Amino acid sequence: MKAARRDRQAGNLPEVLLLQQLRKRPGGFKFRYQFPCHPYRLDFACLSVRLAIEIDGEVHARGDQPLRDERRDLFLADHGFATLRIPARDVLRDMDSVVAAIVGACRERGPLHQPLAGPPPRSGEE
């Protein structure tokens, strides 16, 4: 919990810039920043559609990091989350396209719960 708070306060530039855009609730979706999903922490999460958004810097292509990312994605999938990985350079180069891709991924997942169509029928009504 304290680590998430520290990271929220000291976030890296691509995450901070994306956070500014996601706080505007694009597409009507609400996003959480540095959301804890034990034992991991998601860069961003849209809980209404169970989408994890990870901003990957260059380190994610080195050493054993790709394998670690794959294990993390499998863990999240087992817990109902799809993972959208976005290169940090894309956030810095074309924010509009990144936000559009995130909103598109949210729409593809659709709402997990259908909105109520109104009150249930009364006894004897259909």
Score class of each variant (00 low, 15 high):
67 L>N: 06
112 L>E: 07
46 C>Y: 03
83 T>Q: 10
48 S>P: 13
116 L>P: 14
119 P>Q: 08
50 R>Y: 09
48 S>Y: 11
61 A>M: 08
102 I>H: 01
2 K>D: 10
122 R>Y: 11
51 L>T: 05
9 Q>G: 13
10 A>I: 12
71 R>F: 00
124 G>C: 06
23 R>W: 07
2 K>C: 15
110 G>W: 11
5 R>Y: 08
8 R>E: 06
34 Q>S: 09
10 A>P: 09
54 E>C: 01
97 S>M: 10
45 A>G: 07
39 P>Y: 09
114 Q>Y: 11
2 K>G: 12
35 F>T: 00
72 R>G: 02
83 T>G: 01
73 D>I: 02
12 N>W: 14
102 I>D: 04
53 I>Q: 03
55 I>D: 01
11 G>F: 12
36 P>L: 07
100 A>M: 11
4 A>G: 09
60 H>L: 07
49 V>K: 08
54 E>L: 00
126 E>G: 10
41 R>N: 06
26 P>G: 11
14 P>N: 01
26 P>Q: 14
45 A>D: 09
102 I>V: 13
48 S>M: 14
121 P>N: 10
78 D>T: 09
105 A>K: 04
13 L>I: 09
73 D>E: 12
110 G>D: 11
112 L>T: 05
80 G>N: 11
24 K>A: 13
113 H>M: 05
113 H>T: 12
15 E>G: 07
65 Q>T: 00
20 Q>M: 07
31 F>C: 00
51 L>Y: 03
31 F>M: 05
53 I>F: 03
58 E>W: 13
26 P>T: 14
122 R>Q: 12
101 A>R: 14
79 H>E: 14
7 D>H: 10
28 G>H: 15
46 C>Q: 01
50 R>V: 06
58 E>F: 09
115 P>I: 08
121 P>A: 08
21 Q>I: 06
2 K>S: 13
6 R>D: 14
119 P>S: 12
124 G>K: 09
69 D>R: 02
82 A>L: 05
22 L>Y: 07
13 L>C: 07
51 L>W: 03
3 A>I: 04
48 S>E: 12
119 P>L: 07
9 Q>F: 15
79 H>V: 03
41 R>K: 06
59 V>F: 04
31 F>R: 02
41 R>C: 01
91 V>W: 01
81 F>M: 04
30 K>Y: 13
109 R>F: 14
37 C>N: 11
99 V>Y: 13
39 P>V: 02
76 L>C: 04
126 E>V: 10
61 A>S: 03
41 R>D: 04
24 K>H: 15
112 L>G: 05
22 L>E: 03
112 L>Y: 02
42 L>W: 13
85 R>I: 02
121 P>V: 09
66 P>E: 02
65 Q>N: 02
101 A>K: 13
31 F>A: 02
6 R>C: 12
